[in-house]
Design a protein around this nucleic acid. Structure first.
Lengths: 348, 348
DNA sequence: TTGTAGGCGTTATCAT
DNA sequence: ATGATAACGCCTACAA
């Protein structure tokens, strides 16, 4: 038995195995295996002796060997567009928490919304024999969804449904939540309310847009096409789009944004034009990112329970893995958080 | 051969293996293995036939079986305090990018700065036989570091050194960067400059504090103990601490914060006290989080190349895995980004 | 209570 | 060019 640089006993370059322990304990490796699993079959003293040797030798069971036998890696794969996104970070944090608590590890992969990369990722997850996959990528490409489905691995979508059988998803009630957000503006007295959406083709954009229109219709307000614009969910384009809206002959007095990032841009556009928010322009976002309470003025927005959505998705996956049959959809409620970026329109 | 719900051919509940393909192609499994590896040894037609069957049957090689033989999982473990942190998200994004490009998968685990959880995590990484570990947790507990070291797995620290042999780390030059940040304030004419640090015992806090003191000393400014406070790297305590500073008989005209989150709190404290930033108080942060350019006023701060630090750390790990001997420390430079939260102190 | 033997899905080393 | 055969480290009948 040699000693490696860091002091871990081992044989050659391989880490020590149950066979090594068996040799030291002068028993068979099956006995070692049993003892390490606390099998009642094995003699108490033998168990004791074996465990002692295991600890002293710094033995660590090989999960890969175990996985091969058990046909389960106790690992889940998580696909995100990018982990460098505060929204996704929260969701993944929720996933990781319950995964870890239940003995699962999390394989994380960014797709960067690149289809090729996505496919490589999913294939890699398959080869690594993950027990399940969670997809928080917002966009499920038409070829990507089926591919995932073809892997015979339970699959949970977060904030995106994949139409089809045995498809599971955790969703937010975009329509009513957006409806409520726009209602809030209407009740404040706004009539010219713009919507800056996301052109990337997300289902969530369609739904939020729908909530917006329903609210207007419900209040008998005509929908003005020029007030419905498309951003990309990022501040830069949100800013540019807002500038265009403000340059209209009859600019909106309020804007409902697809998400907080877009709202950030809207806020900046208003400021650089010398407008007061909310006096001259009310702004509502969606997501309630951490930073949204730190903008000036603090942003009125729809809160998504981001962590909870992650934990719920992982819980559904666990049920599936345990053989239960959870509901195929879990819908969480968005909560309108009224802060300082909305008020009645200033009289003019 | 049965057909599973999703259409993937398979035998029973197991996925198909090279042996299955061997049977279908009427060759031995070794030939299949070779063909799938494009071995020149095998007949072109045989290869063709085998590959065809593999594709049609939806065969996916088992990385776990391969890992068992190869003694390498092509997986790296990443330990973070929490992935729901914009700073860490960027770093992990950088890590993941190069890992993925080089065929490695990333196992992610939050420690929540909970020592017990950290230990479980690291143990789990060990059992899963990761090829290397990256630690972006800011705090390396005294027992945690050695434990990591004991695993005979290459280990890279990000923004934390672990004193000891064969320890690798990617660091930012905290001292000079902080020195420059405080110099900036001094050049603007500030004399009473506060520092809000982080009480959690991070090495980075010690170093940034040192940079602060060096800058003051260099300018012949006396260090005033009551102007050196401790936060926890979060906005709430940053705010409270700033309030206390502002309540001093002789409050500071500028504050250098351990990080942007703390600066966020300082900004809020100033605002709620009715002070103008930067007129009444200049504020400097550290990190340059995405949100820092969206605060009002936009924050002057020290930019850390977060993604680059992640990629560099992963690159070092790869070199190690390939048998090279990289430098044990890689130090990146912080860049002072001057925005709108700093100016000369208002005369009074 | 313990040991023997076989298999999980690969790769690799021999033969042939 | 291909096939046996033996690992890799673990689990688990089946025997003893």
């Amino acid at each position: 038995m040699g000693v490696l640089p860091y002091g871990v006993p081992s044989f050659g370059n391989r880490s020590i195995s149950i066979k090594d322990i068996a040799r030291l304990a002068e028993v068979s490796h099956s006995t070692v295996s049993r003892a390490l699993h606390n099998s009642p079959l094995v003699n108490a003293e033998t168990t004791e002796k074996i465990r002692k040797i295991a600890v002293e030798s710094g033995y660590m069971a090989s999960a890969v060997a175990r996985s091969l036998v058990n046909r389960s890696t106790k690992t889940v794969g998580v696909v995100v567009t990018t982990i460098a996104d505060p929204f996704i970070g929260e969701v993944v944090s929720g996933i990781e928490k319950v995964a870890n608590d239940r003995g699962y590890s999390v394989l994380l992969a960014n797709s960067d919304a690149d289809p090729e990369r996505e496919k490589r990722t999913v294939r890699s997850f398959g080869e690594r024999r993950v027990d399940g996959i969670l997809v928080t990528a917002s966009r499920v490409g038409s070829s990507y969804g089926p591919m995932l489905h073809n892997m015979n691995v339970p699959l949970i979508f977060i904030n995106n449904q994949y139409p089809g059988p045995s498809s599971y998803s955790v969703l937010i009630d975009n329509v009513p939540a957006s409806h409520a957000a726009v209602d809030h503006l209407i009740q404040l007295g706004h009539r010219r309310i713009a919507y800056i959406g996301d052109a990337s083709g997300y289902q969530s954009d369609t739904e939020r847009h729908e909530g917006y229109e329903l609210a207007l219709k419900g209040a008998g307000i005509r929908i003005v096409p020029e007030l419905v614009c498309l951003g990309d969910g990022k501040p830069e384009l949100g800013e540019k789009t807002m500038e265009q809206l403000l340059a209209l002959r009859e600019p909106p007095t309020a804007v409902f944004c697809y998400n907080d990032m877009t709202a950030l841009g809207a806020l900046r556009a208003a400021r650089s034009r010398g407008l007061q928010v909310p006096g001259d322009l009310s702004v509502v976002g969606f997501d309630d990112l951490f930073l949204s309470s730190y903008t000036t003025p603090a942003l009125t927005t729809v809160r998504q329970p981001k962590q909870a959505m992650g934990t719920k998705a992982m819980e559904i996956l666990l049920e599936l893995l345990e053989g239960s049959t959870p509901e195929s959809q879990f819908i969480v409620k968005g909560e309108l958080i009224i802060r300082d970026s909305t008020s009645s329109p200033r009289l003019r």
